[in-house]
Amino acid sequence: MQKLLSIVLMFLAVGMSAQTALYNSGNLRIHENGTLGFHTDLINEAPFDTNLGLAGFYGTDALRVSGSVVPLFHDVEIMVENGLNLNLGIDNANNTNFILGDINTPKNLNDIYYNFLDSDGFYIGEGDLTKVNGFAAIANQQNFVFPVGDGTFLRAVTLSSERTTLFAKCAYFFEDPSAPLSLNGSYDTNELGRELERVNAVEFWKLESDVAATINLSWNTRSNMGILTDDTNTIVLAGWSKTNIRWENLGASSVVGDLEEGFLTSLPFVPNDYDIIGLGVSKIPFEPLAKEVLSLDNYFVSPNGDGINDFLFIPELEESPNNLVRIYDRYGLKVFEKPNYRDEFSGIPNVDNLVVQKDQGLPAGVYFYTVFMKDLNLNYQGFLYLTNK
Rank of each mutant, 00 (worst) to 15 (best):
K3C: 02
L9F: 10
M10N: 10
V14C: 04
G15M: 04
T20P: 03
F38T: 00
H39E: 09
T40H: 03
L42P: 00
I43F: 09
A46G: 04
L54V: 12
A55D: 00
G59D: 06
V70W: 09
V70D: 01
P71A: 14
P71E: 07
V80G: 02
E81Q: 15
N82C: 03
L84E: 03
D91K: 09
D91I: 05
D91M: 00
N92H: 08
A93H: 07
F98I: 07
N110K: 14
I112Y: 01
Y114N: 06
Y114R: 05
G121S: 12
Y123E: 05
T130G: 01
N140E: 14
N140G: 11
G151F: 03
T152C: 00
L154C: 09
T158A: 10
L159A: 00
S160R: 12
L166C: 02
T189H: 08
G193I: 03
R194E: 15
E197W: 07
A201P: 07
F204G: 01
W205I: 02
D210M: 09
A213K: 07
N220I: 06
M225R: 08
M225W: 03
T232V: 14
N233P: 00
W240V: 01
W240R: 02
R246H: 07
L250D: 00
S253L: 02
D258A: 06
L267G: 06
L267S: 09
P271W: 03
L279S: 08
K283S: 05
F286S: 04
L289V: 05
K291V: 00
V293T: 13
L296T: 11
D297W: 10
Y299H: 14
G305D: 04
N309R: 10
L317V: 12
N323S: 12
G332I: 10
L333V: 14
K334I: 02
F345H: 05
G347M: 04
I348P: 00
V351R: 06
Q357I: 01
D359V: 11
D359C: 04
G361D: 01
P363C: 05
Y369H: 09
V371S: 05
V371I: 15
K374E: 12
K374F: 08
L376N: 06
L378M: 13
Q381P: 08
F383V: 01
N388L: 10
